[in-house]
Simulated assay, not measured.
Amino acid sequence: MGYFVTVEPGVNLYVEDLNPGGNKTIVFLHGWPLSHKQFEYQFDVLPAMGYRCIGIDWRGFGNSDKPISGYTLNRLADDIRTVVGTLQLENFTLVGHSTGGAIAIRYMSRYNGYGVSQLVLVDAAAPTGFTAETANNFLKEALNDRPKMMQDVTDGFFFQYVTRPFSDWFFQMGLQAAGWSTAAVIVLLRDENLNEDLPKIVAPTLIIHGIHDKVIPFSQAQELNQKIRNSKLVPFQYSGHGPFWEERGKFNQLLAQYIH
């Protein structure tokens, strides 16, 4: 089922809530500039295994409202906290991919991991996001030829071969975002870092990262593993930035084993 949660006056976030009666709850935070739909190949499988799966589109992306402002890690984490409170979620697993991983880390530090029993970081954009050079290139394209930028994102995302129809689907998902929110999150990824947040994470943490990732280098996953207490790093040998699709069988199995 899909519905909207109001996170501030005039700003509603879209929530996809599958198998609400499931035994264990998993909350998914997508990457930039995508939406909850990136987790289609988890939603195909995990709810049928008994998990409640909740996908949240951040403000500015997917089916959510697209205000002009609010694109900081603090505000995006605040939005997640409002959804968690509204849905009365507790003892859930928080899964964040790429920038969604950065938002998840800020949520953990800002709210002392409220409600979260386990954290899963997937190719997380942490402790830093984009280099200044990468960010400025993306920013220029976002403000002048956003479809070209999204094609570049798509082309560099996966290590595995993707078909043209899959590439088109992924491309269109990115264009669902607003131009201004797409650009604002590029600036966030350039200017914010999470080094001070990492020691504050107390929940058991699973770190999944594709060793061929061209977006967020594997070395950053190793750094997270060193700086987050009670964390475990699982390299994905045949993935780039998208192990949730590139090695989806292994990914889904690992999640199911981890969540207990």
Rank of each mutant, 00 (worst) to 15 (best):
Y3W: 11
F43M: 15
S231G: 13
K37C: 05
Y114S: 07
L194F: 02
I228Q: 14
V95Y: 11
L73D: 07
Y238F: 10
Q253S: 15
M150L: 15
N23E: 15
R229E: 12
T82K: 09
L89G: 06
A221P: 04
M108E: 13
Q118P: 02
D145Q: 02
P217A: 02
F39A: 04
G62Q: 05
R146P: 02
A178R: 11
R52Q: 01
W58T: 11
S69D: 15
N137H: 08
S219M: 05
A178S: 15
F39E: 03
R52N: 01
S69M: 12
Q220H: 08
I56Y: 08
I103S: 01
K140A: 12
Y71K: 05
R164K: 11
I56T: 03
R106F: 04
I228D: 14
I207A: 13
D145C: 04
Q151W: 12
V187N: 05
G50L: 13
F158T: 13
F28N: 00
E247C: 07
I228H: 13
Q38H: 03
N12K: 12
P33D: 04
Q253F: 14
F39I: 07
H212E: 05
L119K: 01
G85L: 07
F171W: 02
P204W: 04
T72L: 13
N137Q: 09
S117W: 03
G96C: 05
H209S: 15
G55L: 05
A135P: 01
N225K: 14
P127K: 03
Y114D: 13
